[in-house]
Design a protein around this nucleic acid. Structure first.
Lengths: 250, 250
DNA sequence: CGTTTGGTTGAAATGTGTCAAACTTTGTGG
DNA sequence: CCACAAAGTTTGACACATTTCAACCAAACG
């Protein structure tokens, strides 16, 4: 495998993401391809960046799952976002010097690091790409708002259903869902931390959802027999994800 | 009062906000002053923009309080942010066509509307201002993350203390706090909706906080006799607000 | 094949919700 | 400026969702 193809392959999750917003010109595509990116493979359960860090670079997730979390003073963890292929969960560090959250790998991840200076350079040269990056951080923000609602105003059961819906829609958008099934390498403890409940309760809710034939979840494999029912159970309306194309009803 | 002064007065909360991040050049100041802004005074309890809207303009809060909220399918409300002077709570509409939240006035507000086209124009001409706006939306996002943590992992009492701390620090940053006191025109029901609890419980928590001499709260007036104790009760660390200057310890 | 990690279970404790009523303050029109 | 309505706050008793703690089981793994 020669360098050019390698390069193309590694930048593709980013390019695919931006393409889903608007069509890139040849110029823009080239600018993205030329963006210096340092590749790394990171094992599971490793912090990529930590709260308090002052990063000099951002990263894109090329494959694998991450989570972004914060801790209370007494050590309780709240996951505030999951990261999947194509995401740039710390894009904010381009503007905010000190990180206010920690990002960890949930699975082995392939990561592309981009230096801030190179990213700034790209943004100044390619205004539409800068706008697209800005937009990305806004979509992230919209998801945070929905999570506040989810954690604040929904009971554990619909809360779990909602987060499963979000994951499915986002995974589908990057081609990681087949026939309403996907790989979900997230433990019950990790779900609990995302929902603001205990592991025990997360377990009970999942069992109930299985009993209700809402999901089939075994190990890392999730299958959704009836998408409409799951959406309804989770009070899920994907508008907040600001995807161009929604999940097809058929 | 002639037009120029009027103009100056109305733009000043915005300019002050940007100045708190970096010093504006004369050119940048002028560009901001020239930004066409349509002023409006809006009564209390009026929606400024609604979920589902496709705004053609953004707005800045020049004075007054707003809240941003979302509803569940069965009508439960979750406030996800408060807006105060200098904030631009729907800046995101510049990039995201359909609004995913509603913004309401809590008090009479004076609002400055700016058309998207004029804002785009400004951003393309003044790159540093565009960056500052982008940064603003990122700080907002950081606050959402903290709210997820607050609602997900803190009990009602520290949760309330935390939100009071946030409001105090932000109000102080725009000069609305005197001697650890401020006007807080937020009802207990509105606090409840921001904390994900019921009005009854919000009331009980506030009473407990008064009994603990953590706050003096009567009508719209809040006084904090011991800032350090309140911060500790709320597990509050203002780093996530990404202000340049923090609350002085003295 | 033992050890670790993740999942499951039960019983008791508790934070918060619910409901319904009364009280207080604020605003307003007569 | 009073009277009344509306909005906001406070109270009590009870219900319930979720936590806590502690143990056990199952699967993954070196």
């Amino acid at each position: 495998m020669h360098a050019a193809f390698q390069n193309d392959y590694n930048h593709s999750p980013l390019i695919r993401k931006l393409e889903s917003i608007f069509s890139l010109t040849d110029d823009e595509q080239q600018a993205l391809m030329d963006l210096p990116m340092q590749m790394a493979v990171i094992k599971a359960d490793q912090d990529i960046v930590r709260e308090g860090d002052r990063p000099s670079r951002c990263f894109a997730i090329l494959s694998g799952f991450t989570c972004t979390y914060k801790l209370t003073g007494d050590g309780k963890r709240q996951i505030v976002a999951y990261g999947i292929a194509g995401d740039m969960p710390d894009l904010q560090s381009l503007h905010l010097k000190v990180l206010d959250m920690t990002i960890t790998t949930l699975t082995p991840c392939s990561i592309g690091f981009v230096r801030h200076e190179d990213l700034w350079d790209l943004c100044l040269r390619q205004t539409r790409i800068a706008a697209a990056f800005w937009r990305e951080t806004l979509v992230e923000g919209a998801a945070f708002r929905e999570w506040v609602l989810n954690v604040g105003r929904r009971e554990a059961y619909p809360r779990m259903a909602h987060i499963l819906c979000e994951l499915l829609v986002r995974l589908r958008a990057v081609g990681l869902v087949d026939n309403h099934s996907c790989t979900l390498p997230i433990t019950q403890a990790e779900f609990a931390d995302a929902l603001g409940i205990t592991t025990v309760h997360a377990n009970r809710v999942l069992q109930q959802m299985r009993a209700d034939d809402l999901i089939e979840l075994k190990g890392e494999r999730l299958h959704v027999p009836d998408w409409e029912r799951l959406k309804e159970a989770g009070d899920f309306h994907p508008a907040y994800l600001h995807l161009v194309q929604e999940w097809p009803t058929a």
